[in-house]
Design a protein around this nucleic acid. Structure first.
Length: 913
RNA sequence: GCCGGUGUGGUGAAAUUGGCAGACACACGGGACUUAAAAUCCCGCGACCGUAAAAAGUCAUGCCGGUUCGAGCCCGGCCACCGGCACCA
């Protein structure tokens, strides 16, 4: 059983409370599976290349390796303190040469492969066949280089001047970098990975995995498959064809103009002399716009007429060709046929520039035809008239193909992956340049180590920092090294495979080990699945790491290097932990706190009375006068009792994402110091379902801490406990030996459990086991709380029952559970057997059956009474018992009983009127 | 704008297949123990109505409607919040 966590970037700030949430979940699942007899792979490592370490290096001049090592040590300390059962012999660090040697090796495989569309698989570049008209070696080389899965591109890329590096599309958010710096488009020589070749497989294979639907959706949206047709329009007066992509070929009769992206190669030839200056100016302006500007101006359509015209192939109509930046060069063919009648953007543009609009689809119902973009029936479209949209699409596509005017095509939004960065702290490429051509270094030269530098700053020219190391760049054989480095994702793309065989220096991951842990083998457990069995992490990687990893994995699968098509079988997203709930105290204009009822009145009258207010009342939408207060203040404000008891104020109790600027970050070290690791683990699991977003409440940590105290007192003799605490206070350093002196409670004996005791235990075993199978940790904990509450009242406590309970507790609170188990075993005179490798208790259903059961009796769906019947009572017996109830009798008096329903003997419902 | 998720007491939340709404906790109130406090243990705790106290009753899972003997859960229509995508033709 392979239980995997998303490995952290070891930042200088240390662990935040979000990290241990997922880690605790996988640790519990790992411990549970060990107890069930599985061999469990549960590793941890460090995604340690990255920008913060590099910026620290720029500031201090210290090598990023040093700062990274410090941060890793701190993370490791914090993680170890939490008692996670990681196999540290498999620890990986993406910045170790022994690790990134294999990142570079995988890159070499990509470089030396191409994607064969016939087989739909990656193959060695040696199997590539060349078109007959390529005769010279140079031509063949160019053809070959253009087919590699790792290739060089000169296309415009996302350049971030502030960071001094380029970024992948997935890393640009709203036209800005993750850190909020502006990103502009700029043509540069870059390494790309051909992820687009895998678009369809990445989409299809989402069916193979057990992932949250929302996350699959995000990936499929990102891949962005759309079916449509490409259509050729003849350019009027020129021997050129203008090819467009459309998902609505059925609206071809409604195309009243065309639009080219400003970067489109046909812009120049079709522009007339009168329009040339205007077009040139528009192109220049568009080139200067950053992506942010382009999205900011999304509401206002801009464009310029080229002067040229095209011929609509279906009706010979001469339509004008415009240039506008709402058409993107990077999607489809970089040109569109505009159908303003049935496309929102085209309509806006047509209205802005007074272009004709034709209706060609009849909208269903009483909807307006113009502006209707859904499926309807074709009109004003000659041979398509009367056809519903899907059929019209089929017919026009067949017509276009027959006439050689176009064909059905599929387009994807996903772009090739920009894989180079102008940074120091990343894997150097195993590539050298010679006479303007790139060449792969042989495997024997791996790992390629980065040179030491005095200055890690990015250069203004966009040259990577590695270019400063002239000795390193210029090799004795006359070749020069590639000076870009790989992005942080390179290391995280395949780390889960390295854990499997972490110390192998002959292979990135041995085939045997890979099959054992992720493939199906004879000794796979009953619920083993191909790939990592369980992967837990946040949603922030939905389209970055998780897409890149799947791509690399599929590539390695094609090469026969891994045995499964998908890397992660089951994926669970932990929900974000927010900061403590914040309350707002509302005051009136005089500064007096207002009560909830007053609050409502004030909200209603706000505009008329002209009160000065701040904040928004959620329901009324009215503005309110407010100031931030703590929950304690709220409760103490008894006179106005606004906060503790009233709904209205709850609307204004909110929690926010933890952030330094808001000052609501919870440091795990502080929580551990106060409550210990077990309480911390337990709290993170008790706060709610793993997948849900939930606020942190330190008071509730005290709650589970109290529960652990109850468990302790259940086992431990009072007098020795008091002594233990006193000794700890006066002589804390000897905790271990004081602990050894603590005695078990006298009530704990090697005796046979009573029926009630067995029932309590097995109810708990059943609930905890079922909940763990479904990762419902919060309710498993409440089941254990119920057991402990009951066990507290027992005079004689059977050691066997308590030991089984400890086995249930162990995955959640291993420190306490193991300590108490050791004491129990000593009582029984047995050698201590660690809970970690002891068997999970089995449920004995016979203890759960009852002699009699209590059923609620409803009259017309409302519970009126409860009856007790024998466990094996028939429906007739139950019915009779229900009708015999005094309360039932008085309720149905004067009414006719229409029907009595006894579903699965869980309740009785009497229908009477 | 489109897509997804969520909405239940003062708070975090339970309710596993349509079958007793609020498990388990936090907070709060009361009590026991204590010189006192902390800790611990016990009791109460959705709202309304009612009562000396109870009992009984009514309402209640964002809002409006539907299906059903029965709806937090299913269906239709809305609202709010959170997240994702967003000129992708």
């Amino acid at each position: 059983f392979y239980a995997l966590d998303m490995f952290p970037y070891p930042s200088g700030a240390g662990l935040h409370v979000g990290h241990p949430e997922g880690y605790t979940a996988t640790d519990i699942v790992s411990r549970y599976h060990r107890a069930k007899g599985y061999n469990v792979l549960h590793p941890m490592g460090w995604d340690a290349f990255g920008l913060p370490a590099e910026q620290h290096a720029i500031k201090t001049g210290q090598h990023p390796r040093e700062n990274t090592a410090t941060n890793v040590a701190n993370f490791k300390r914090q993680i170890k303190e939490l008692g996670f059962s990681y196999d540290w012999t498999r620890e990986v660090n993406t910045t170790d040469p022994g690790y990134f040697k294999w990142s570079q090796w995988i890159f070499l495989q990509l470089y030396n492969s191409w994607f064969n569309p016939e087989t739909n698989k990656a193959e060695s570049i040696d199997t590539l066949t060349y078109p007959d008209d390529l005769t010279t070696e140079d031509q063949k080389r160019e053809y070959r280089d253009n087919h590699r899965l790792a290739f060089v591109s000169h296309a415009p890329v996302n350049w971030c001047p502030a960071l001094g590096t380029v970024l992948a599309n997935e890393e640009v958010i709203d036209g800005k970098s993750e850190w909020g710096h502006e990103v502009i488009r700029k043509p540069m020589r870059q390494w790309m990975l051909r992820i687009t070749a895998y678009a369809q497989r990445l989409l299809d294979d989402l069916q193979l995995v057990d992932w949250p639907e929302s996350l699959k959706k995000m990936q499929s949206d990102w891949i962005g498959r759309s079916e449509g047709a490409e259509v050729d329009f003849q350019v009027d007066g020129l021997d050129k064809k203008l090819r467009v992509f459309t998902t609505r070929p059925d609206t071809l009769f409604g195309a009243t103009y065309m639009v080219l992206a400003p970067e489109h190669p046909l812009v120049d030839p079709i522009t007339t002399d009168e329009q040339r200056d205007a077009v040139k100016a528009y192109q220049d302006a568009a080139a200067k716009k950053s992506d942010l500007d382009r999205t900011d101006l999304a509401k206002e359509k801009t464009g310029v007429f080229s002067g040229g015209h095209a011929i609509n192939p279906v009706n010979g109509a001469k339509i004008p060709i415009w240039i506008a930046d709402y058409v993107l060069i990077s999607y489809g063919t970089g040109a569109i046929m505009a159908v303003p009648g049935h496309d929102t953007r085209d309509l806006e543009f047509a209205q802005e520039f007074d272009l004709p609009v034709i209706e060609v689809v009849e909208a269903p119902g009483d909807e307006e035809n113009i502006g209707f973009t859904g499926n309807g029936v074709s009109i004003n479209s000659d041979f398509l008239n009367g056809l519903p949209t899907p059929e019209a699409k089929q017919k026009i596509a067949a017509w276009l193909e027959e006439k050689g005017l176009g064909e059905k095509t599929i387009n994807y939004k996903i772009r090739d992956w920009l894989f180079s960065r102008q940074r120091y702290w990343g894997e150097p490429f195993p590539i050298v340049w010679k006479d303007g051509h790139h060449e792969a270094l042989p495997e024997s030269e791996l790992p390629v180590l980065p040179p030491d530098l005095d200055d890690y700053k990015p250069t203004e020219t966009g040259e990577p920092p590695l270019a400063r190391a002239a000795d390193w760049v210029n090799r004795p054989d006359g070749t020069t090294r590639e000076t870009n480095t790989m992005p942080q994702w390179a290391g995280s793309c395949w780390y889960y495979l390295r854990y499997i065989d972490a110390t192998n220096d002959a292979s990135f991951c041995g085939a045997e080990a890979e099959k054992y842990w992720t493939g199906q083998t004879d000794n796979s457990g009953p619920d083993a699945k191909p790939g990592v069995d369980l992967y837990v992490g946040g949603t922030e990687h939905a389209v970055l790491h998780l897409l890149y990893s799947r791509f690399w994995h599929k590539f390695l699968f094609d090469l026969g290097q891994v045995s499964t098509p998908e890397p992660f079988h089951r994926l669970v997203n932990q929900g974000l932990i927010l900061g403590e709930v914040e309350y707002t105290l509302f005051k009136d204009a005089e500064g007096d706190p207002v009560s909830a009822t007053e609050l409502k009145d004030i909200a209603e009258e706000a505009t008329e009375t002209g009160l000065k207010m701040a904040g928004i009342h959620k329901q009324s939408g009215e503005k309110l006068f407010g100031e931030k207060i703590t929950e304690e203040d709220a409760v103490q404000d008894g006179n106005h009792s606004v906060f503790a008891q009233d709904k209205a104020i709850r609307l204004d109790a909110r929690s926010f994402k933890m952030s330094k600027s808001r000052g609501n970050v919870v440091n795990p070290d502080d929580v551990l110091a106060q409550f210990g690791a077990d309480a911390f683990r337990l709290y993170e699991m008790f706060m709610g379902p793993l997948e849900m977003v939930k606020p942190w409440t330190t008071k509730n940590v005290a709650g589970v801490y109290k529960f652990l105290g109850k468990v302790w007192r259940l086992f431990i003799d009072d007098a020795s406990d008091t002594e233990f605490e006193q000794n700890l206070t006066t002589d804390a350093g000897n905790g271990e030996s004081h602990l050894a002196a603590v005695k078990l409670a006298a009530g704990i004996q090697d005796v046979e459990p009573t029926k009630e005791q067995n029932k309590a235990l097995h109810t708990c075993i059943k609930k905890v086991t079922e909940d763990l199978d479904h990762m419902r940790f919060n309710t498993a904990i409440s089941a254990m709380m119920i057991f402990v509450g009951e066990a507290q009242s027992w005079n004689a406590k059977p050691a066997s029952v308590l030991r089984q309970f400890l086995q249930l507790l162990q995955p959640f609170a291993p420190h306490l559970a193991e300590e108490l188990a050791a004491k129990l075993d000593a009582l029984s005179g047995k050698a201590f057997k660690t809970l970690t490798y002891d068997a999970w208790p089995a449920v004995d259903e016979s203890f759960l059956t009852e002699d009699s059961i209590t059923l609620p009796v409803q009259i017309n769906g409302k519970v009126r009474d409860r009856i007790e019947v024998a466990a094996d009572a028939s429906d007739e017996d139950i019915e009779a018992a229900a009708l015999a109830s005094e309360k039932v009798k008085s309720q149905i008096e004067g009414k006719t009983v229409r029907k009595i329903i006894i579903p699965k003997r869980r309740l009785v419902n009497i229908v009477a009127n």
